[in-house]
Design a binder for these strands. Structure first.
Lengths: 144, 144
DNA sequence: AAATTAAAGGATAAAAAGGTATTAATATCT
DNA sequence: AGATATTAATACCTTTTTATCCTTTAATTT
């Protein structure tokens, strides 16, 4: 469903959300450790998300990644769009260029329903809430 | 959602279903033409599906691909599983190895719902029905 | 000034997508 | 029956995209 890059991005964002309470920041190494991902790869992904303003960062000692309050309110939908683009949410399920309402592909209507549901699910998934569930150990990103 | 290979596979299978009425067969070139796909690539995909018994083929003059009655009843779910595997339908949405009911990832439950819906949609999508809609020009695989 | 940490850019590896050439099977035509 | 034409199967090669790694630079604190 998502690219590997996107899976890492989602995991990292939820992790950062969890760790960045009252102004705390979290470094690449901790993130790598916390979500079990390749260090340099996640660094590059976060640079990307940082440029787009989805995550904040600070260099230097005690620097790291963190989320402003406004960023904590963002949803997985924004993360997914930033990394994987919106092809899934707007394009044809069978990859046809000229698929449309008036010229639909064989799975046009059904696919539309499904992707609407995916989008709903992602929009409802706010980083604040996800990180809270993580904090309360209702959900997990790593082996116990 | 699906790999490009899988998109081609689905398009090809629906096209073959449409063309293989009363024992007729359809060659690679026609398929390529009919679904707008790279010739040799689709050939390779069909070999794969043929080995798995999802499509039938015959070499030689007037040879080509066709579907037995039983194969026409198969659904897109089987096609997708044959090409992309069942990772999407069984694996974790965030790519976690050890995600489970008792140790769920942050989107575990929601993802389960979505993928259940995708599977339902694919299981209901039988090749016979899809090819009929195509025949009646209710749906399309190519530019008009 | 020194130490720390992210940013940036590129190098390498692996996987997916697409292409080429050869071989095997089958029908048709002598 | 045998030769020929046709068509899918097989094996291998190239390109493109995705994923991963490494090295250097820039910013910030102490």
């Amino acid at each position: 469903m998502f690219s590997k890059t996107c899976e890492y991005a989602i995991r990292a964002m939820i992790f950062i959300a969890q760790k960045s309470k009252n102004g705390q920041k979290v470094g690449i190494k901790q993130i790598t450790e916390g979500i079990d991902s390749p260090e340099h790869f996640i660094a590059k992904i976060l640079q990307d998300l940082s440029r787009r303003g989805l995550v904040q960062s600070l260099k230097g000692p005690n620097g790291g990644f963190y989320l402003e309050d406004s960023a904590k309110k963002s949803s997985l939908f924004e993360v997914v769009k930033a990394i994987d683009g919106d092809k899934f949410f707007t394009g044809c399920g069978l990859g046809l260029k000229n698929c449309s309402e008036t010229h639909p592909c064989p799975i046009h209507d059904e696919f539309k329903k499904v992707r609407r549901q995916v989008q709903d699910m992602l929009e409802k998934a706010k980083l604040v809430d996800l990180s809270e569930a993580l904090e309360n150990e209702i959900t997990f990103l790593k082996r116990k």
